[in-house]
Computed example of a mutant assay.
Amino acid sequence: MDKTLIVTNDFPPRPGGIQAFLHNMALRLDPERLVVYASTWKRGSEGAQATADFDAEQPFTVVRDRTTMLLPTPRVSRRAAGLLREHGCTSVWFGAAAPLGLMAPALRRAGAKRIVATTHGHEAGWAQLPASRQLLRRIGEGTDTITYLGEYTRSRIAAALTPQAAARMVQLPPGVDEKTFHPGSGGDAVRERLGLTDRPVVVCVSRLVPRKGQDTLILAMPRILREVPDAVLLVVGGGPYAGELRKLTAETGVADSVRFTGPVPWAELPAHFGAGDVFAMPCRTRRGGLDVEGLGIVYLEASATGLPVVAGDSGGAPDAVLDGETGWVVRGGPAAVAADESADRIVTLLGDPELRRRMGERGREWVEEKWRWDLLAEKLKTLL
């Protein structure tokens, strides 16, 4: 029986979008034909216990390396090759092409017949720097297929590959569980708990890092409040930018109209999306194009929940929006510059219930047509 070996650093319980992508795909493959080789989430007894508990719940085999970050070293390559032979795996899926895809030749020698490497946002950054560009080229030569999220990442990564490897690229974005993210996901209960029952809510669900644009939304709030005085910005998530954002709300004078939830368990995220009337995350590109949004699955989760979205123009984020149909794409530049455009779009949506309804319904329809996990998992099975 042919089996697949997934080699990845990005796997739960480590949090993040790539981790959720891989786990959702893995759950839709045959568990009897799947082995996951992953790094350890974090050191210490608490991290070890969380990892052990998570692994025990999975229907497939999970093998953890002792390190918290797998690198394509000789030791890791030998371990991966040993697992490939031990479990009779004939195909390999690198959960993130860079840098682990550099192990492809070693796994080919160990018996892998099909090797697929998935790219995300950071590989587009690799493609811009001479040294990492050459490594990306080697990964393309060593694999059968490199997958990409959307046109933005495809065009940049393809430029670093040989023409033959670029021609083998296939789109494989993350999907949305439309049964989990839906209009009746429990948003009313979240609103009631937070005291927001009768207020128009702009919700942003994401890690709190500068690229995501929560600061743009805070700077947009004075303009929004002039038009919609009882509006509130609900910022869902945790991250290193939290302190700066809280400080900015005070400096901007909108602290009473911005709520921070902090980190929220994954199971509660659908209800927090549902607490909003509008979803907004005006993400921006930073560091000369090295820090970009690969796709922005949160826009699609919001669409599945029936919300119109306001997205930034960073990287592949526009691929997750039908501009003018499921929401709008706005400029995601410096916060002080981008705030006015975000405010304009948000005010328009908050003031027009019919427009919100129409865009939300179209977004839900689009997710069901194109972005369901089961459709994308079938595509992965074919590639493997």
Rank of each mutant, 00 (worst) to 15 (best):
F11K: 06
G17H: 01
Q19D: 04
L22G: 01
H23K: 12
R28L: 07
L29Y: 03
R33F: 08
V35K: 07
S39Y: 07
A52G: 12
A52R: 15
D55I: 09
T73D: 07
P74K: 12
R78T: 08
R78Y: 08
R85D: 05
E86I: 06
A97N: 10
R108L: 01
R108W: 06
R109S: 09
A112D: 10
A112W: 03
K113R: 15
R114A: 03
T118M: 15
T119V: 05
T119E: 03
E123R: 08
E123G: 00
A124F: 06
L129R: 15
A131M: 14
S132E: 10
R133P: 04
R133V: 02
R133M: 08
Q134H: 13
L135Q: 13
T145R: 13
S155E: 15
I157R: 08
Q164K: 13
A165I: 02
A166I: 09
P173T: 02
G175N: 11
G175I: 01
G186H: 12
A189F: 05
A189Y: 09
V190M: 06
R193D: 07
L196E: 02
V202R: 03
V203C: 01
V205N: 00
I218V: 11
I224H: 01
Y241F: 13
E244K: 14
G253F: 04
V254P: 04
A255Q: 15
V258E: 00
F260Y: 11
W266L: 15
A267W: 11
L269H: 02
H272I: 10
A275M: 09
G276L: 07
F279Y: 12
P282H: 07
R286M: 13
R287Y: 12
G288W: 10
A302P: 05
G306W: 05
G306F: 05
L307K: 06
G312D: 04
A317W: 05
P318R: 00
A320T: 10
D323V: 01
V330M: 03
R331H: 14
V347S: 09
L350I: 07
G351I: 02
D352C: 04
R357P: 10
R358K: 14
R358H: 13
M359I: 06
G363H: 10
G363N: 09
R372N: 07
R372G: 06
W373M: 04
L376D: 03
A377W: 02
L383T: 11
